[in-house]
Nucleic acid binder design. Structure first.
Length: 218
DNA sequence: GCCAACGTTGGC
DNA sequence: GCCAACGTTGGC
């Protein structure tokens, strides 16, 4: 039922519980004496990247901008094609009703285009088994699927587009003065296509909608 | 189109 | 389990 979309992420390693070697090592150290419930911090806001301009991968157009989501039935789509364990694990943490920014990547002017809502929590990404899909994963078996997806629904456009360049200026400024974007994953983990935002980061970015585009003040 | 950053692979 | 080679992301 959920319509189709494409998100793009790297192929990743073979570890079937989905941690990189480094992350796993850390987790093991951490959970040695503490119990299972040494849970990761719970995030409730997200940023999800997708490409609004045409680009062909294995003969398939990866274009899926916020307008494409809005044009879907019920303005809803599954977020398939994520093939990176960190990104997948963040999707598995997502809860029904949480909000995310729809980020336009790999385009003329990258930036945050709008707000979307998680409307279905993580379930099996069927495209991993589809040989014709750009993100087919021959190493994933139906009895033990590797990759998950969520469903998202369009909420609204940003009142104004928030370009990456502007976010970066705030990031640099906040690194110096301790402001809310000082550790934003968009800059500290630039290649992650699904990333968490703290409430402070999310609220600060929303507040930018009301501001004039950033200018350096002398 | 270039290429830096970084994640993954595979030889040893 | 190190690490060089390779592949991908995504800004510019």
């Amino acid at each position: 039922m959920p319509p189709k979309k494409r998100a793009r992420v790297t192929k990743a390693g073979k570890d079937d519980d989905g941690e990189t070697a480094g992350a796993k090592r850390k987790a093991t150290e951490k959970t040695k004496e503490s119990t299972e419930s040494a849970a990761p911090p719970q995030y409730c806001h997200w940023l999800m990247k997708s490409e609004p301009e045409s680009r062909f991968e294995n003969g398939v157009d990866m274009k899926f901008g916020i307008k494409d989501l809005k044009a879907m039935p019920n303005q809803t789509s599954c977020w398939d094609g994520v093939r990176n364990y960190q990104a997948r694990n963040f999707m598995r943490q997502m809860k029904d009703g949480q909000l995310a920014f729809f980020y336009h990547s790999n385009c003329k002017e990258p930036g945050i285009a709008g707000v979307i809502k998680i409307v279905k929590e993580a379930y099996v990404d069927h495209t991993q088994f589809d040989k014709k899909d750009a993100h087919f994963d021959a190493s994933s078996k139906p009895d033990n699927p590797k990759w998950s997806m969520v469903d998202v629904q369009y909420q609204r456009m940003m009142k104004r587009y928030i370009p990456l360049s502007e976010l970066k200026k705030y990031h640099l400024q906040h690194r110096a003065d301790g402001g809310p974007l000082k550790d934003m994953a968009l800059f500290t983990r630039a290649r992650l296509s699904v990333q968490p935002l703290t409430t402070e980061e999310f609220d600060f970015i929303l507040s930018l909608e009301e501001e004039k585009p950033f200018r350096w003040t002398k």
